[in-house]
């Protein structure tokens, strides 16, 4: 095992983490501001990927596909908020879970009905395909490098939006006291629709980006949704900064664990036992991380008590 391979795996972990951040940011924002547990967040990710694949397939332009993904996911998010979620603010979390779980089924079968049962084709744009040689001689796929840059840019933009803009102030205010900001004359229901659409757009955007290197198929959102929940629980529910740190932690832990654990066990066991113990433990690693974080900080890394 060379040091270059290790550096490459760290890059892979970062890239995976930034992708998770795009998912988790929307989820944590929606929970933090609106108090809604949105299980259908994975479906919005899927909507983004399918919109991108559909439009990119028809026009041949990946950029148009990305725009379509943002638009379609934001629109789907806004519609869902207005028709379903709005009725759930005063209900308890169990009702929200039930309703948003129903939305998963509706989105999945609806997508299947529209696009068919076979996975769709979405390829990396020609300008970003292939590998580049990084300083030190690491060959790294250009597209993954682009995802790292885009992920960092979106994170910076989101921090700026929340901390520096008027809408960000309202979002933070809505997070701390729903009744109060309504009394101050802020149109709370419009704000909620906006936040939900923003979260949905982020999910759709990440679905489209990932769709180019993964399988665009019905049900693609649910595994990511579980990881996104792990991320926001580690980071502290409702905190964007927590989602960022949590996502990077989960990305690095998962990637490096998959790679290093079988090697580490190889020092004390025979190869085949090391492989099976190592890979079994690697798939549990992020949940062990989550349990450890919760043990020492029950509200997550940046969560408020």
């Amino acid at each position: 095992m060379s040091i270059l391979l290790l550096i490459e795996q760290v890059l892979n972990g970062l890239q995976f983490g930034l992708m998770l951040f795009l998912m988790a940011a929307g989820l944590t924002l929606i929970f933090g501001v609106m108090g809604i547990i949105n299980l259908a967040h994975g479906s919005l990710y899927m909507v983004g990927a399918f919109a991108a694949a559909g439009v990119a397939g028809a026009t041949g332009s990946f950029a148009l596909g990305l725009v379509a993904a943002l638009a379609a996911a934001a629109m789907a998010g806004a519609i869902v908020e207005i028709t379903v979620i709005r009725r759930l603010y005063t209900r308890d979390h169990l009702d929200q879970v039930l309703a948003t779980f129903a939305l998963i089924l509706i989105f999945s079968e609806g997508t299947r009905w529209l696009f068919g049962s076979f996975p769709l084709f979405l390829d990396v744009p020609a300008a970003l395909s292939g590998a580049v040689t990084l300083p030190g001689g690491i060959e790294y796929p250009l597209y993954r490098l682009a995802i790292i840059v885009i992920g960092l840019a979106v994170a910076a933009g989101l921090f700026w939006l929340i901390a520096r803009t008027r809408i960000g102030i309202r979002i933070r205010a809505g997070e701390s006291d729903r009744e109060m900001i309504a009394a101050l004359g802020v149109d709370i229901s419009r704000l909620y629709t906006l936040v939900f659409a923003l979260g949905a757009a982020l999910a759709g955007f990440s679905g489209a980006l990932v769709g180019a290197i993964q399988s665009v198929q019905v049900g693609m959102g649910e595994p990511v949704l579980i990881l996104a929940f792990v991320v926001i629980v580690i980071g502290g529910i409702g905190s964007i900064r927590g989602a960022f740190v949590g996502a990077i932690l989960v990305g690095l832990t998962d990637t490096l664990g998959r790679f290093l654990l079988p090697v580490l066990f190889g020092f004390v066991m025979d190869p085949s036992a090391a492989t099976s113990v190592g890979s079994a433990l690697a798939s549990m690693l992020i949940y062990i991380l989550m349990a450890a974080v919760l043990l020492f900080r029950p509200t997550g890394l940046y969560g408020r008590a």
């Binding site: 095992m1 060379s2 391979l5 490459e8 795996q9 892979n12 972990g13 890239q15 995976f16 060959e139 796929p141 993954r144 990932v210 290197i213 993964q214 399988s215 693609m220 595994p223 990511v224 990637t255 490096l256 998959r258 790679f259 079988p262 190869p271 085949s272 492989t275 099976s276 890979s279 690697a282 798939s283």
Partner: peptide, 21 residues
């Protein structure tokens, strides 16, 4: 090498790096 991945895993960057090496 003999690598077993998580069922349902969608990102294979770590494994592909091992294949290249």
């Amino acid at each position: 090498e003999e690598v077993y991945t998580k069922l349902g895993q969608q990102d294979y960057a770590a494994e592909i790096a091992q294949m290249r090496a």
